[in-house]
Write a protein that binds this DNA or RNA. Structure first.
Lengths: 207, 207
DNA sequence: GTCTATAGGGGGATAGAC
DNA sequence: GTCTATCCCCCTATAGAC
């Protein structure tokens, strides 16, 4: 049983951060929600910023590992040829979208991750960006292989559009409204089709 | 000359909100930056929340009017036929992207607007959403006309993906790095092509 | 490990002089 | 309209008892 104080604080913080934002969530609110004492946060984590890092890391690290695993499978399938664009896109967005169904992680985590990319606080952006950098590079490289007709800066720009669309889909309450598996798969399918269409759009520069 | 205290406070607040986020920006920081007194905020605006509303409204309202104007021109060009998808997309994103060049509004405003769609605070979301609702409905209707092969819920979903990609492009410091007209137009062109490709992607359901 | 109590700072808002 | 001074609240972090 991992229902100890530390875990309850992480769960409460995750939920409150997702609802109201990080700045607006006080340690008092977190410990009250967790049924713990105010001092417990500093005892277990050291500071609010360290707590934020653990809230993100607990979920993001496995998520990013799954992205990399799926990407490597897609690249292995392609051998020396051009890898499948939908497979790459799905490797990137599916782990996040499917996590919506996870009753443990659940919706609040997804909104939190979605928001991570746009969070105002420079501290939070740094925390998330550090954990995301390797993933971003690997996917940009794979996208460049799958889209040989695009120059590098166009691939970078389109990769960012992809992050934006995904992040927004993740924070949108109606997009992840249904906890039903059916709804989640439909949302994922829609997102992948949209992104594939956008990524392989003509640039107006090829002959 | 509108370089009065009220305007200076609005300018300073806009800049600081964009840099650090709204919650993290204190009235003390704003008045210091504006060269005004702390009490001036409550004298001119009544409260911090009212100031936030004016910071957004001052820029968003003209922006949304321009979107509607451009959309109506695109729809008029189409007559009774199917309107041009790129024209609709450009009507939506161009006013925001081109505002990056405006030396008056400038970059901080754009990042602020981009962030508005993903801002954590429920108060801020309400302020922005209220001013955005009419625009969203008009564009969803136009997109449905331009994409008759898509069902309504798919159009809604794709419209949200479009907002996400645009908002992220607006907050990304490298995307709006250059104050140069050339860079801005290239960013806009890339975004429009990506979005058009995504919006008209096949759904996998048509025969 | 978990509590109470409090230090120490910063926040938004306001009263009242000028 | 703009200032100073201040109220009162909530925050994070910590000290020290249990």
């Amino acid at each position: 049983m991992s229902d100890d104080t530390k875990t309850r604080i992480l769960d409460a913080a995750e939920r409150l951060f997702a609802d109201a934002g990080i700045d607006a969530t006080s340690l008092r609110a977190i410990t009250a929600e967790a049924g713990a004492n105010l001092a417990a946060v500093n005892y277990h984590f050291g500071s609010k910023e360290a707590l934020v890092g653990e809230v993100y890391g607990r979920r993001i690290d496995p998520l990013n590992r799954e992205r990399i695993d799926r990407l490597q499978m897609a690249l292995r399938d392609a051998g020396d040829g051009v890898p499948s664009l939908p497979a790459i896109v799905e490797a990137f967005v599916a782990p996040a979208m499917l996590a919506m169904q996870d009753p443990d992680a659940g919706r609040s985590f997804i909104r939190l991750v979605g928001r991570a990319h746009t969070e105002a606080s420079a501290d939070v952006r740094r925390i998330v960006f550090t954990r995301f950098q390797d993933v971003a590079l690997a996917f940009q490289k794979a996208l460049a292989r799958a889209l040989p007709q695009l120059d590098r800066s166009t691939v970078q720009a389109r990769f960012k559009f992809m992050i934006g669309a995904m992040a927004y889909a993740m924070t949108d309450p109606t997009a992840c409204a249904g906890p039903s598996e059916r709804d989640v798969h439909r949302s994922l399918d829609r997102l992948v089709r949209f992104l594939v269409g956008g990524l392989q759009a003509p640039t107006g520069e090829e002959k």
